[in-house]
Simulated scan of single mutants.
Amino acid sequence: MKKISLIALLAIAAPAVFAQSQDASPTVKVPGYSIVMPDRTVGKAGAGFDTYRGAYDLSNGQVLALTERGSTMYAQLDDGERHELAATGYGKFVAKDLSLKITLERKMDGDFGGEMLIAKSSSVAGQPTEYVRIALR
């Protein structure tokens, strides 16, 4: 009986998975994710901001810029709005308006990688916020 249930489930899910694989978009909608501000944050030095400051090409073709003004850190996508950041750990940042969550790491080859979670507000009142996950290249 378990085999039949599994086969039925796979048969139902296969068209949805195939449709997703045909989508040329390099972003992934991530159910169950959220962006929250932790109780404790760290300073610029504790987050290694000077190491990560700069511009990053994203897998969806956009550019993420991490900048600072005085002691305040910012993230900006392309020519869009700047979002003030709070550092939550080394290479980890959350926009204070809870619109972005960025995780960066230095790879073994010295290059940088990571991912970014972007909150997309629903156009329908009462619907949950949708999150899109984008890789940094």
Rank of each mutant, 00 (worst) to 15 (best):
K3E: 07
I4C: 00
S5W: 08
L6A: 12
I7E: 08
I7T: 15
I7R: 14
L9F: 11
L9M: 11
L10E: 07
I12Q: 07
I12H: 10
I12L: 15
I12C: 13
P15C: 06
A16W: 05
F18G: 13
Q20F: 13
S21T: 01
Q22G: 07
Q22C: 10
A24V: 02
S25M: 10
K29Q: 15
K29W: 07
Y33G: 12
Y33Q: 12
Y33L: 09
S34Y: 04
S34G: 15
V36D: 14
R40T: 15
A45H: 06
A47M: 09
G48N: 01
T51V: 14
Y52K: 00
R53M: 13
R53T: 13
G54C: 10
D57R: 02
N60K: 02
G61N: 04
G61H: 03
Q62K: 03
V63W: 05
V63C: 08
L64K: 01
A65I: 13
A65V: 09
L66F: 11
T67R: 00
T67E: 07
S71H: 13
Y74M: 01
Q76I: 11
L77A: 02
L77Q: 06
G80M: 05
H83M: 08
A86K: 03
T88Q: 05
T88M: 06
G89M: 07
G91I: 03
A95E: 02
K96Q: 13
K96C: 10
S99C: 01
L100E: 02
I102N: 00
I102M: 01
T103Q: 12
R106L: 10
M108Y: 09
D109L: 06
D111G: 15
G114D: 04
E115Q: 13
I118M: 05
V124L: 13
A125W: 07
T129W: 05
T129Q: 09
E130W: 03
V132N: 02
L136F: 08
L136G: 04
R137L: 10
